[in-house]
Design a protein around this nucleic acid. Structure first.
Lengths: 341, 341
DNA sequence: GCGTAGATGAGGAACGTACATCATTTCAAG
DNA sequence: CTTGAAATGATGTACGTTCCTCATCTACGC
C-alpha cells in the first residue's frame, strides 16, 4: 500500500477534505466529535503529513538569524564556514539565513543587537552569547514575539530558550580531566587557562575537570585558573611565567580560546614534550598542534552537526513538529593525532 | 529576490518551459546551442531544482535494501535499531527500506542472498559484508542492473561500489595504538584479539595499531593476534590463558566482537585494574564496561550517522546529485567514561 | 416553524516540477 | 522550393498539501 494522503483520511473518517484540512491545521469551526473522528482515521491509517508538499503549498520560508561573536576567533570562523556550507547545500532549503555579528564581551551591546532584531521578519533565532539577566529578558521578548529561540554552543538555561544545541560543559571538563589523568605519567601540576572565568562554559568545564582530577587522579594538582581576558600578551606572559616557576608542571588544560598564543609560549619554553596539553575546539591551530604531537587531545564539537542541528531544530520548532533528540544530541568529540577528520 | 524557478529560466533563456524541462532532465531533442543557452541561464540565475517538488511530481519512491549480518551481534542490533529510527523519522521520506539478514561468515550464502535480490524492485543496496571475489562479482551485477551500491562499515574497495560509508580501519587502528601508548604507564605487552584476521577490518586495524606502537611506543610489545572465530568458549580460553601466562600484560586491544566474553574473562583474572582495555564499537556491554572503568576507551562510529549517511548517499546516487563529502565523512569517535553519549 | 450561527461539504487555484501530447517552427537535404 | 525530420512551443494534468470561497446542512433557541 502507498502512503495515505489527506484524501484517504477524508474517506476513512467519512468527512470532506476541507474538514480534514481544518483538523490537521487546527483551524476553528470543527466539532470535537468530528475532530476525534479525523484523528482516529489518522491513527488507523498511520498518516503522516508530507512536509515538503505542505511547504510547497504554503510557500513556507524559514527566516532565521544567527547571532555569533564578532571579531577574530578561529572557532566562530569555522562556525560561520559551516553555516555557509549548510546554506549552500539542500539542508537549508526554503531557509533564509542572516548572520548577525555581536560584540559578545559587552552585555549592553548584546542586548542592543538583540533588541535591534526585526522580529516581524524572523521566524527563529540562534544565539551564541553569554547568559546575563539582560539576555534573559531579551530572549523573553523574542519568545513573546512568537519566535523560535535556540542557544548555540553556550546554553542559556534560565532563559525561555526552546532548545540548547551544544555539548554539556561539565561533561566536557570531566572528559578533559579523565584524559589528563590518563595521559600524565607520575605526579605533577596542571595549569588551567581560559579567557575568562566569568563565562559559564569555563566555570562548568573547570568544575568537571576538578571533580575528576580530585576523585580519580590524586597524583595531580590542578592549579587555580588563570584568565587571559582575550589578551594575547597576557596569555603569553601567564604561560611563560608558570612554566618557568613550576618545574613539576605536567599538563596544561586550555578551556577557552587563545590556543595559538598559549602554544607558542609553551614551544618557546622547550618543555612541550614533557607537558600534556589538552585544549578545546578543533581549529587550524589546534589541528596543526595535534599533527605535530604538541597537543595530546582536543575536546571538540562537530560544527557541521552543530549548525545542521540548529537549523533542523529551528525548523521543527516553527512547524511545531517533534524533535528527534537522539539525532540532535551533539557529541563530545575527542580528537587525537590519529583520528583527525 | 525569491528562488528562481523553471519558469524564470525559460524566460531568461528565451525558450519555452518544455525546452527547459528537456534540458534539465537530459531528454533528447534539443540542439546543443539551445542546451547551452539554458545552462547559461541556470548559471546566471543560480537556479537549483527543488528536489522535493520534483519528487512530488514524479512520485519518486526510493527502494533500498540493507544487507546486514544475521545472528546475535550487539553491533548489528544497534545498527538495525538506528535504521528503524531513521525510517520512522522524516529522514526516510519517500523511502522503502528492506533489511535483509545475511550469513556474513559464509561467502556462498552471501552471494546467494545477493543473487536472490530482486533488482527490478530496488533502486539501491547497502552492503555490510566481507569482500570476496564472489561478492565483487555480485556487486558488478547489481551495478549492471543500474542500482546504487554502497559499502557499509566494511569497505569493498576493489568492487564497483559507488561509495563507502564507514571509517578508515587503518586510522581506527592507529587511534587505538596511540591511546594504548598514552594510557599504559611503563612497559609491557599488549594482547590483540579479534574474531578473525581474515576480515579486512581486523587486518587493517592491526596494521594501523602496530605502526603506531612500533614507531612511537617502543616500551610496548604487541603480541601476535589471536582469533576467537566467533566462539565464546575459545575467546574465554584465549584471554584466560594469556593473562595467566604473561605477568607483564599491560593492555588488551579487542579489534572485533565478543567483548562481553573477553571482559568476563578479564574480570575473573582479577587483573582488570592494571590492564588498559581498548575495544571497538559502542554496544551495551562496552558501554557498561566504560561506566565501570573496566574499559579505558572505545573506538566507535556513530551508527545513527552511519545509516542516515547511507540513506542520503543512496538517494543522491539515485538522483545523480552531488554528495557532500564533508557531511558524509563518518568520524572515528573515541568514547571514554566521561563522554558517553 | 423560523431564523441563525456554527459545522461541514464541494470545488478550485496555487506551489514547483515532471511528463505527455500535439502543434508549430526551423533547417538542411533533395 | 518542397519535403521531412528534428527542434521547439503551447498546453494540460498530476503529485500532496494549503487555503480560499461559496453553498448546504444541522441543531438550537425562540
Amino acid at each position: 500500500m502507498n502512503k495515505p494522503t489527506v484524501h484517504d483520511i477524508a474517506k476513512e473518517a467519512g468527512v470532506s477534505l476541507a474538514t480534514v484540512d481544518r483538523v490537521l491545521n487546527a483551524r476553528p469551526g470543527v466539532r470535537d466529535k468530528t475532530i476525534a473522528k479525523v484523528q482516529a482515521a489518522v491513527e488507523r491509517l498511520g498518516y503522516v503529513r508530507d512536509t515538503y508538499a505542505a511547504n510547497l503549498a504554503r510557500q513556507r520560508q524559514y527566516r532565521f538569524a544567527f547571532l555569533l561573536p564578532e571579531g577574530p576567533s578561529q572557532f566562530s570562523d569555522t562556525l560561520k564556514l559551516a553555516l555557509q556550507e549548510a546554506y549552500s547545500s539542500h539542508v537549508a532549503d526554503r531557509t533564509l539565513l542572516k548572520i548577525v555579528p555581536v560584540a559578545s564581551h559587552d552585555p549592553h551591546a548584546i542586548v542592543r543587537t538583540l533588541q535591534g532584531l526585526n522580529v516581524a521578519q524572523l521566524d527563529g533565532v540562534a544565539l551564541m552569547v553569554p547568559e546575563t539577566p539582560q539576555v534573559r529578558d531579551a530572549v523573553a521578548r523574542l519568545k513573546a514575539a512568537g519566535l523560535a529561540v535556540v542557544a548555540l554552543v553556550s546554553d542559556l538555561p534560565n532563559s525561555q530558550r526552546d532548545h540548547f544545541i551544544g555539548i554539556n560543559s561539565v561533561a566536557a571538563g570531566r572528559t578533559a580531566g579523565l584524559l589528563m589523568g590518563r595521559f600524565v605519567k607520575g605526579s605533577g601540576e596542571i595549569l588551567v587557562v581560559t579567557n575568562s572565568m566569568r563565562s559559564r562554559d569555563s566555570l562548568e568545564r573547570r568544575l568537571g575537570f576538578d571533580a575528576v582530577i580530585s576523585s580519580d587522579f590524586k597524583n595531580l594538582t590542578a592549579l587555580p585558573s588563570i584568565e587571559s581576558y582575550d589578551d594575547p600578551v597576557r596569555m603569553d606572559q601567564i604561560v611563560a611565567q608558570v612554566v618557568a616557576a613550576r618545574p613539576r608542571l605536567a599538563g596544561v588544560y586550555s578551556m577557552g580560546g587563545g590556543n595559538t598564543t598559549m602554544l607558542n609560549a609553551l614551544r618557546r619554553s622547550g618543555r612541550l614534550d614533557e607537558i600534556a596539553v589538552i585544549a578545546h575546539e578543533l581549529t587550524p591551530s589546534t589541528r596543526q598542534a595535534l599533527e605535530a604531537n604538541e597537543v595530546a587531545a582536543v575536546i571538540t564539537q562537530n560544527v557541521g552537526h552543530l549548525v545542521r542541528s540548529a537549523l533542523r531544530v529551528l525548523r521543527n520548532l516553527c512547524d511545531q513538529a517533534p524533535i528527534f533528540e537522539s539525532q540532535e544530541r551533539i557529541r563530545i568529540e575527542i580528537v587525537v593525532r590519529e583520528n583527525l577528520p
